[in-house]
Design a protein around this nucleic acid. Structure first.
Lengths: 209, 209
DNA sequence: ACAGCCATGTAACTCGTTACATGATTAC
DNA sequence: GTAATCATGTAACGAGTTACATGGCTGT
């Protein structure tokens, strides 16, 4: 649709972004290293593509002249290393300057299940949310470690801001889930499970037309 | 991988969930109506599938016996209506009861761009975040309307909880983005754009090994 | 008569995943 | 020697999108 010559997916730009952070004096990154970097950082705000996609994506960037691949053969080990090119950096900057940015996409299996938890009752909803709290804590710990490794250096200012954003997000989620757990057990109610409520089933239409 | 006979995608279960909320006395929903419902609610926590996918997905559910399709021909207008079956509801409940739930996936183009904003400077980062604030406000307004339509009815308790969760999420985002905007313009700094910082480029490796 | 909504579907394609296949190097 | 990690790739498939094609019904 966008007629700026060949168009890249957001994931391509994300990988290009990983290459740009590698810096000029470096000999470049192997696909393997790119994947590791993606696992460490990209996964929190985007996705970490599968290894196979990393390789095909890097080859694509090279084909478009946005990355240079240098076949590196020190002993015997084949290891292709990729660096961002001037053209690649130019394209990345163009992309960053684009005024129209898609709204974030959230795929939230926990919220989706909570939505329908009337079918299975509050006990299940509770364990669902508690499980999510555990996952959140573990994710937060991972991200906190990343944040720590970024430090306060001026050159890593933006990555640090994004990491802080992520930590704040996890904290907000945890806070809200705690609140929901409270709502799930109102003051006077005993600990006994009242069983599933019916979702308006056979009790008239839920949303009146 | 999961050997519970034919397995459905989360999107299938989400659509099944839309059907279950339609309630027994209803004649069922058309694909068109399912899509509209998805646009109104599902999109906030999952995705709203394309029309074409809604139709193929509903047909799939019918093929598996999880939804019944009644070809409805009142005048001439062909309109296939779908209702969830007992088997469908059973499968949905099984899915809801599953202990292992995937961690949410966030695709955040704004955070992704902020991460690399060192390449284009704080001015661009600012407009990026301000644009996001606008989008957030509009999204929040949409969701607030949905929340309003849910009211305080006991039968819609869970959907209401999820809507409140969503509103809280949008508020957290807005609060954090404001904070980031403040960080982007530190106290003493003048309004002049200092230009792009280099991301550790030609200034030694960013992450020391 | 024409626009806009209701309604359904097929075809081609993209993005991304898992499974598979291969092999070198390093640490114990 | 053998397990873990480094390293690269292909093939098959699934999920989801856009583009396309079709047509009835409703209000102005």
């Amino acid at each position: 649709m966008r007629s700026v010559s060949q168009d890249l997916s957001t994931t391509s730009y994300a990988l290009l972004g990983l290459l740009v952070f590698d810096g000029s004096p470096s000999p470049g990154m192997t696909g393997y290293e790119v994947k590791q970097r993606a696992d460490k950082t990209l996964r929190f705000y985007w996705v970490s593509p599968a290894m196979s996609q990393v390789y095909t994506e890097l080859e694509r960037l090279a084909r478009f002249g946005l990355a240079s691949s240098t076949s590196d053969v020190p002993g015997q080990r084949r290891a292709r290393r990729y660096k961002i090119t001037a053209l690649g950096q130019q394209r990345l900057e163009q992309w960053l300057a684009q005024p129209e940015v898609d709204f974030p996409t959230l795929k939230h299996p926990v919220a989706l299940r909570l939505l329908m938890s009337g079918l299975v009752g509050p006990e299940r909803a509770r364990t669902l949310l508690e499980g999510y709290l555990d996952q959140l804590a573990s994710r937060r710990a991972d991200l906190l470690q990343v944040r720590g490794s970024l430090g306060e250096a001026e050159s890593l200012r933006y990555p640090a801001m994004v990491a802080d954003w992520g930590l704040d997000y996890y904290d907000s989620e945890a806070r809200m889930v705690h609140e929901l757990l409270v709502r799930l057990r109102p003051a006077g109610t005993a600990a006994t499970d009242p069983g599933p409520t019916n979702l308006g089933q056979s009790a008239g239409p839920v949303s009146p037309r």
